[in-house]
Write a protein that binds this DNA or RNA. Structure first.
Lengths: 229, 229
DNA sequence: CGGGTTACTTGACGTGAATCAAGCCCGATA
DNA sequence: TATCGGGCTTGATTCACGTCAAGTAACCCG
């Protein structure tokens, strides 16, 4: 573990409430790995061996079916996964794959389970982290059930931008193929959705997307001011 | 609070780890209400006032959009909601409505926040509870993204039945309209999906559904043995 | 510089599910 | 008993999105 990792570890909600000495003690059981783009951290259906905390790089969580797979969520530095599988000691529901080269904190499952049961601050951190995830997942389910593909793309782009801003450039968290999976559509449909938003001031080039008028886009997305409320 | 409520309270994962005296102390801040069918417990967009724990009856969690609403999840005795909104002190993402007459434990938000921060066992219970919810939500997202309406219905019915069983009768957690919402389809499509499953041995009458051959249904649902793994 | 690979876009077409619209069943009410 | 109304089913039609198939652009490697 490098000394430069500590600030990254502290940034995670999971550890926000844990005191310095306790944290140091906990981390003796852990190690950090630098892994290449495409590395698989855990595979759907396998038993949880480690809790992973992303220190740098981005990770994609994928659900796999017969001949298909769909990206469920993007994760970045500070995110921990898969807390639920580790805590409950059951198999993973998802496959996690690095989308970049990245550094990952590895925490043996049994040690983490014991710690979270013993240390109130860590459990509280886990509650905060899981609460945040619960909300993003609920948001995604609502989007899938209530919104069209174009509206979902609008909402997704707006969520990448700061609130109440003028023209902005946002950076997609992955290639178009991955974004399409996150939105629950095919890459082709995503391409068409971007085309449909172009008259509304969304001009895309590669991974950078310019939103000329966020207010107009927000209005179009259906009166969705309640989105993150 | 009635004495008959205590066993129900103990059944919830949230309190499983909390010792008897601590529990009694915590509950002094709470009260229990019996509410009629259709009562709204919290409304999307409002600030969290109470944590609710279902003691009896069933509750539906609904997402609301412009002119539409969709059932996101059914809850029953032992379930607590909306922990994330209460813990993070942010507005609800969902509206909760009683589907039956039911008894609900009401826990003032500020008191719960303080308790969960102070009491490791309670925080740990919350971690367990949220971990379970995380997994059901992930399952639902995977279903929405990867499965057709008919496959989703199959998976949903199978999840209601005990594993590895012969012919069974399952009870839907709500009317067809609600089940359709949970599956992300319209009631008409649900009706057609049931019709499509009839040749596979699914015969429905009202809220009771008979699955003549769960193994065959499971195979049909796509090689989804990994569903809850 | 050429050839290949990968990522994205665009077009034509098919299909699953929504929508519109009856019709049916059954329980509640007078 | 007659009438009403809500929940469910069924049929016809429409539409959003998926699928299949080119086509283009950018990048890598020989």
């Amino acid at each position: 573990m490098r000394t430069t990792d500590m600030p990254l570890i502290r940034r995670s909600r999971l550890f926000a409430q844990v005191g310095e000495p306790d944290l140091a003690a906990m981390l003796t059981a852990c190690f950090v790995q630098t892994l290449p783009d495409g590395a698989v951290l855990c595979r759907q259906g396998e038993k949880a061996e480690f809790l992973h905390v992303v220190l740098s790089g981005r990770v994609g969580l994928f659900g796999e079916a017969a001949r298909d797979e769909a990206l469920v969520e993007f994760l970045g530095p500070g995110d921990a996964f898969i807390v639920p599988a580790v805590v409950l000691d059951v198999p993973y529901l998802l496959t996690a794959r690095l989308l970049d080269e990245g550094r990952i904190l590895m925490w043996p499952a049994a040690a983490f389970r014991a710690q979270v049961r013993a240390t109130g601050q860590l459990a509280y951190g886990a509650v905060l982290l899981l609460s945040g995830y619960w909300r993003t997942l609920i948001g995604q389910i609502k989007d899938l059930k209530l919104l069209s593909a174009i509206e979902r793309l609008s909402a997704f782009l707006l969520a990448l931008a700061p609130r109440d801003t003028g023209p902005v450039t946002v950076t997609l968290p992955g290639g178009r193929r991955l974004v399409a999976g996150r939105l629950g559509i095919t890459p082709q449909s995503l391409s068409r959705a971007f085309a449909a938003l172009r008259p509304l001031g969304v001009s895309g080039g590669g991974r950078e997307v310019v939103i000329a008028d966020p207010a107009r886009l927000r209005e179009f997305a259906g009166v969705r001011a309640l989105k993150n409320t």
